[in-house]
Amino acid sequence: MTTHTVSQDDRLDDFTPIDLELEGTKKRVWRSGHGPAVIVMHEMPGISPHVARFARWIRDGGFTVWMPSLFGRDGAIGSAEEGADVFRRACISAEFRALGAGVSSPVTVWLRALARHAHGECGGPGVGAVGMCFTGNFALTMMLEPAVVAPVLCQPSLPLDVPGGLEISDEELARVRGRLERENRKVLAYRFSGDAFCRAERFAAYRAALGENFVARELPDSAANTDVPPFFDRHVPTPHSVTTVHLIDETGQPTLAARDEIIAFLGDALSGEAP
């Protein structure tokens, strides 16, 4: 059996690569596991070994993970320079809206189609969606797809230029809030208190827009791992990635408790026990 470590490139050899054409666009998706579907959307600068580790934890919690490749080299750690280049290209890509609040990234249309496809393949009461960093808010926008019933937002960082901005339109927010209230569902969200990319103003805006349906978890900066890969060491000056790079995989650590809470949240929603 292959041993996977976050300190070297990950071959993703326990995932099956699938090239899916949805909404007229083909993307690679890495699939693994059994049970209800959970879409895991990776952070910058790509599907890193840390992201793959998180996806395996979700899979081992009893789910089928669908992990779309949205940017970067799959499985790679990469250099600080390579990561910065991925970031720049994503910022000018037509698929993403890195700057300016009040509009969703076009790629979320494809991701909602992926959720429908995954639900059809895996069955169950619905699909979970976990976004992180650049993709953090995508899990919320995916609630516009009825199949998505368990959204998790990890350090949602867009828009980059408006700390209290939300990467979703007011009309879409109203539709999401209406659905959350009708179905008695929650949005689970995480950030470090000193995060420079996902600041307190953004969580305040989510609370104002979604009310009690928005469940926020703010972890102390002291809970963050300090042994990080080159991209984070060079370009991410504050604690940021709650469930991946800055997670400390030790019993009693707040980041590990966050991971366990996410798995429990997904289990409750996708087992049919909630709401």
Rank of each mutant, 00 (worst) to 15 (best):
G128V: 04
A129N: 10
V130G: 09
V130Q: 06
G131C: 11
M132P: 05
M132G: 11
F134Q: 02
G136P: 01
F138K: 04
T141M: 07
T141K: 01
T141W: 09
M143F: 13
E145F: 07
P146L: 10
V148Q: 08
V149S: 06
A150Y: 07
P151Q: 07
P156K: 00
S157I: 01
S157W: 01
S157V: 01
L158R: 04
L160C: 00
L160F: 10
L160R: 06
L160H: 00
L160Q: 00
G164H: 08
G165L: 05
L166Q: 09
E167V: 00
E167C: 11
E167M: 11
E171I: 14
E171C: 03
E172A: 12
E172D: 15
V176T: 03
R177Q: 12
R177N: 13
G178N: 14
R179C: 14
L180F: 11
E181H: 12
E181N: 07
E181I: 13
R182F: 09
N184Q: 12
R185T: 03
A189E: 01
Y190F: 15
F192I: 03
S193W: 11
F197R: 10
F197Q: 10
F197T: 04
C198M: 06
R199G: 12
R199C: 13
R199T: 15
E201Y: 10
E201V: 12
R202Y: 09
R202E: 08
R202M: 05
R202N: 08
A204P: 08
A205R: 08
Y206V: 00
R207L: 13
R207Q: 15
A208K: 13
A209C: 13
L210N: 06
G211T: 11
E212T: 13
E212K: 12
N213Y: 09
N213Q: 14
F214G: 07
F214Q: 05
V215T: 04
V215D: 10
V215C: 13
R217L: 08
L219Y: 11
P220F: 05
S222H: 01
S222P: 00
A223Q: 04
A224Y: 01
A224H: 02
N225R: 08
D227M: 12
D227S: 15
P229H: 12
P229G: 14
P229M: 13
F231W: 14
D233R: 11
R234C: 12
R234L: 07
H235R: 11
V236A: 02
V236S: 02
V236E: 02
P237V: 06
T238N: 04
P239N: 06
S241Y: 12
V242E: 02
V242P: 00
T243G: 09
T244C: 15
V245Q: 07
D249C: 05
T251R: 14
G252E: 06
Q253W: 01
Q253F: 02
P254V: 08
T255Y: 01
A257E: 12
A257C: 00
A257T: 10
A258W: 09
D260Q: 05
D260A: 12
E261C: 08
E261V: 06
E261I: 07
I262V: 15
I262T: 14
I263K: 13
A264Y: 12
L266H: 13
D268S: 03
D268R: 10
A269I: 00
A269S: 03
A269E: 01
A269P: 00
L270S: 02
L270F: 04
